[in-house]
Structures are given as structure tokens and as C-alpha cells.
């Protein structure tokens, strides 16, 4: 029992550390990439870490004294890290025994919920606009994500995330999983808050939306949570829909996963650079189509393709 528990705890720690510590690095690489496309020098790869450190020490300006605005950012980051433990990263998800794909979908939404609550608590009208947009994006994206995962579940005959990934690794790609993976990839664009879907933050319109009244350490935590989320969802995508090759050795598998996740995120960043921002109704319509395409994937999965 103890070895099993220790193993779970170790894997948990590993996933949390990967999501927590490596996500600023990924963000740094994406910034660099954007700079290259813009023909700029760009900041150093470590810039996100430096941002976080700097912000943690800065003065914390609060518009309201409520518990929610004090704890909200920490809960946001905490829930994203819980999500990391439900996602396979080179190994089966460490908390797979505690949550299946449905739990995963709900926990993925949890971070957004706490962010929105923090935003609403601040009382800024911009935060309300941003929160409202964030919610609508969630409404648009999560169904697509859920359908994609359900496709995997139908193929594998189980709702356990780890088992779905293992089934994929063992059985190779099929039409339905490819389509579902594509849907999840398109959903990632908005999950990561990248153009053309950075509608909630939309600096030029609503000045950061939910983040407008956040400053100092609380801003640092929320930023961190957003970066971690994009990495975790990217890992989920590659682990569930492209788990090959499985080497069987944790460090190698993990490294491979991270590389694949980087590739995915680079694609996301490229789309980000070359696209203008959509309006929220356009985004809704876009993801409606994505959702219906994902349903087609589901239909294929049902008939065994």
C-alpha cells in the first residue's frame, strides 16, 4: 500500500512540477517564436520566470476586501494543477483512480470558474465583460473538448483517462480519433487564450478582462495558471490522441510528450500570430461547427471507424 501510495504521490508531484515549473519555459519559447515571426529579437526564454518573480514582490492593489478576491487566484492555480494530475504525462494520470474524463472536463472548467469569480469580485465593469466572454468561450469550447474525449471513451469502452490513452497507444489511430484529436486541437486554441480567441483578455478592448484589477502576486498566480493550463491541455491532446510511440520508460515518455506538446503549442502560436481577433459571436459560431464536426467523429466511433 505504501509503495503504491508513494508512487501515486511521486507521479502527482512530477505532473505538478512539469505543469508548474515548465509552463513558463514553454511560454517563453512561444514568445520567442512570435518575436521571430514579427522579425524582432524577443525576450529571453527565461523572461516569463522573471515576470513571475517580479510580480510576486510587487504591491497588491485590491478593489474589494473580500475573501474571494484574496483567494481566487490561488484557487485558480490550484485547480489547474489538479487538472495536471488528472492528465497523463508520460505515465497514466496519477489521480486516474480519483477522476475519469468527465471529472477531467469539469476540473478543466473549474480554473475558469475561479478566475471568473475573482474577476466578478473585483467589481470592475471590464472584468465583468471579460468574465462574461470567458464563460461564453468555455460554453463553446468545452463541448468540443468533451465530445473529443467521449470519442476516445467510446473507442476504449471506458471512461478512465489512462485506459483511453493506453487503448490509443495499443490500437493506433483511426478516422474517428483523428477527427476528435483535431477538434481538441482547435479547442486548445481558445483554452490557451490565443488569437483569434483571446477574446476574454482582449487587451486592446477590455484591458485584460478578468485580469484588469489584478496586480502583483495575484496577477502572477493567474498568469501562471493560464500558462500551465495551455501546457496541460496540450499534454492531454498528445497523450490521448497521439500517444505513440510508447517507450515504457517514464523519463523518455515524458520528454517525448513534452516535445509533442511543444510542437502542438508552436502550431497554436503560429495560428495566433497570423490571425486577427474574432468577435465572441463569431467564435461561438466557429466552435459550434467544431462541435458538430466532433459529433461526426463520434458517429464514426460508434460505427467502429
Amino acid at each position: 500500500m505504501t509503495t503504491g501510495a508513494l508512487q501515486v504521490l511521486g507521479l502527482c508531484a512530477l505532473n505538478v512540477l512539469v505543469a508548474g515549473l515548465l509552463s513558463p519555459l514553454f511560454e517563453g519559447m512561444l514568445r520567442k517564436l512570435r518575436a521571430i515571426v514579427h522579425s524582432r529579437m524577443g525576450p529571453p526564454l527565461t523572461q516569463p520566470y522573471l515576470d513571475l518573480l517580479k510580480l510576486l514582490g510587487k504591491e497588491d492593489l485590491r478593489t474589494t476586501g473580500g475573501v474571494l478576491s484574496a483567494l481566487g487566484p490561488a484557487m485558480t492555480l490550484g485547480s489547474v494543477l489538479v487538472l495536471a494530475m488528472l492528465v497523463p504525462m508520460g505515465a497514466p494520470p496519477p489521480l486516474g483512480f480519483a477522476g475519469d474524463v468527465i471529472v477531467l472536463v469539469y476540473v478543466a472548467g473549474m480554473g475558469a470558474v475561479f478566475l471568473m469569480l475573482t474577476a466578478f469580485a473585483s467589481g470592475s465593469p471590464y472584468a465583468f465583460v471579460g468574465g462574461s466572454r470567458e464563460m461564453m468561450l468555455l460554453l463553446a469550447v468545452e463541448p468540443a473538448m468533451a465530445i473529443a474525449l467521449v470519442v476516445g471513451a467510446v473507442k476504449a469502452g471506458t471512461l478512465a483517462t489512462g485506459a483511453i490513452a493506453a487503448w490509443q497507444a495499443a490500437n493506433g489511430p483511426s478516422l474517428s480519433t483523428i477527427l476528435a484529436g483535431l477538434a481538441l486541437f482547435l479547442a486548445l486554441q481558445a483554452q490557451a487564450g490565443k488569437l483569434p480567441f483571446d477574446i476574454a483578455e482582449a487587451d486592446q478592448e477590455v484591458m485584460g478582462g478578468p485580469l484588469v484589477e489584478l496586480s502583483g502576486p495575484r496577477l502572477a498566480l493567474v498568469r501562471w495558471a493560464l500558462w500551465a493550463r495551455q501546457l496541460v491541455v496540450a499534454c492531454l491532446l498528445v497523450e490521448v490522441f497521439a500517444p505513440w510511440p510508447r517507450l515504457g520508460l517514464l523519463p523518455l515518455d515524458l520528454a517525448l510528450t513534452l516535445v509533442k506538446a511543444l510542437v502542438v503549442l508552436v502550431l497554436v502560436a503560429v495560428i495566433d500570430v497570423v490571425n486577427p481577433r474574432l468577435r465572441v459571436d463569431q467564435a461561438l459560431r466557429y466552435y459550434l461547427r467544431v462541435g458538430f464536426s466532433a459529433l461526426a467523429a463520434l458517429a464514426f466511433a460508434v460505427i467502429g471507424m
Binding site: 475519469d100 471529472v103 471506458t158 471512461l159 478512465a160
Partner: peptide, 10 residues
């Protein structure tokens, strides 16, 4: 077991 939810753990 095909579905999991451990509220205390989460």
C-alpha cells in the same frame, strides 16, 4: 471499473 470519482482525494 470504468468510471472514477474520489471527491476526498480531489
Amino acid at each position: 471499473s470504468v468510471a472514477f470519482w474520489a471527491p476526498l482525494t480531489i
